[in-house]
Simulated scan of single mutants.
Amino acid sequence: MTRSVPFDSTPLTAPVTRAEVKAYTAQLRREGHLGSPVLGVVILCVVGAVFLLALGPILIAVFATILDPGGPSAIVAGVLPFVIFVGIVALAVWGITRGLGGAAERRFRLARFARANGMRWLPRQPAPALPGLIFGRGSSRAASDLIRGENPRFVEIANYRYTTGSGKNRQTHRWGYVAIRLDVPLPHIVLDATGNNGLFGSNLPLSFGRDQRLSLEGDFDEHFALYCPSGYERDALYLFTPDVMARFIDNAAALDVEIVDDWLFLYAKRDLSTLDPATWAWLFTTVAALLDKLAQWARWRDERLEAVPAAGAVASGIPGAQSAGAPVLTPPPAGVAPAGRRLRRGFSWVAVVLVVAVGLYVAVTLVATVLGS
């Protein structure tokens, strides 16, 4: 995301050697970013040995019954389970090694791509401390393949996973996100993209009160549903001027957007940190287009915060100005009043309909049971 460095996607597709990948993997292990694959192989062998000890006698008896128990086949019956075990372990080790090789090459390509574009790559970040609506939910939260840039402002692009439920209802949620650090905290605003909605509406994990929906001019509403805290409508209009709206429509219409605290997030229900050059070209173009407009947001101030007296200020003596000896007030400090820091959550009408439908089904079933008896 560094403007002085031209976009270069060559490392994503250029040939690499096994020696390069192996050396980089060893470096990551030395730096503590990767564990050793030996542990996984050892665990696999231990599990296999326990399996063999538990079922080996049964398999020997089965093979001995099928084969001739009095001839040379008895030896085969005793050796065959061990041959099967060794074969299974060999296949498992081969599969693990091949998978690790592909993952290692992916890591090497992403790290080299990040360097070529003035950024850096991180393999994993458990439970990232970010305030966005997809973070802090469920369990096993982790970001992976993080690409970070610091200039002209902090930008992070990564994949994100978290799980909800348990047992058969356990579900893993997959997201890709772009996190951009802003100059000042801003009101909580969500732009729910209409182009990626599903059959039951928004794909976001939270819903917001419909009275917080703000309609903007032009065709913006065709691309985004904008939610802002009640009373902050004028502030949202200040932030989303026609030129800013045009940038979001032209570059980010396929992404959900959230402004919260001093962060701007772009969300997608798929991986964004990939080896696909087209995806990265689109992301770099999108972020660059938005960065050009974010500087004007730094001037926003929440008028609901109290202005503070300027230290050592004196009255100007201009007619209509404050009287002599009265403190001269400076603009409100950067920040957001409590009412604007978070949107108020709303009901999920899909969930309400499902609950009502289940309730009606149960009621009808009970009535039918009573009448039938």
Score class of each variant (00 low, 15 high):
Val50Thr: 13
Trp280Gln: 08
Phe248Met: 07
Asp68Lys: 08
Glu222Pro: 04
Glu105Arg: 06
Ala111Cys: 05
Tyr267Phe: 13
Trp175Gln: 09
Asp250Lys: 14
Trp349Phe: 14
Gly312Leu: 12
Leu146Met: 11
Trp297Asp: 07
Asn151Trp: 13
Ala54Ile: 13
Thr369Gln: 15
Gly99Glu: 04
Ile88Asn: 09
Met1Val: 10
Tyr232Thr: 01
Asn251Asp: 00
Ile134Tyr: 00
Pro331His: 09
Leu290His: 02
Ile84Val: 15
Asn151Arg: 14
Val362Met: 12
Val336Met: 10
Val5Cys: 05
Gly335Val: 01
Ile318Val: 15
Ala357Ser: 12
Arg170Asp: 11
Arg148Trp: 10
Ser166Asn: 02
Thr13Met: 05
Ala193Ser: 15
Val76Thr: 15
Asn169Leu: 03
Ala368Pro: 12
Val93Arg: 09
Asp250Arg: 14
Leu55Ala: 09
Gly48Arg: 04
Val38Pro: 03
Ile88Arg: 08
Trp121Leu: 06
Pro185Ser: 01
Val367Pro: 04
Leu199His: 11
Arg141Trp: 00
Arg141Asp: 14
Ser73Val: 00
Ala307Phe: 11
Gly35Ala: 11
Leu67Met: 14
Ala179Leu: 09
Ile157Asp: 02
Thr365Tyr: 14
Ala337Pro: 05
Pro128Gln: 05
Pro309His: 08
Phe135Val: 03
Asp271Leu: 01
Pro81Asn: 07
Asn151Ile: 08
Gly167Phe: 06
Ser36Met: 09
Val79Asn: 02
Pro57Glu: 07
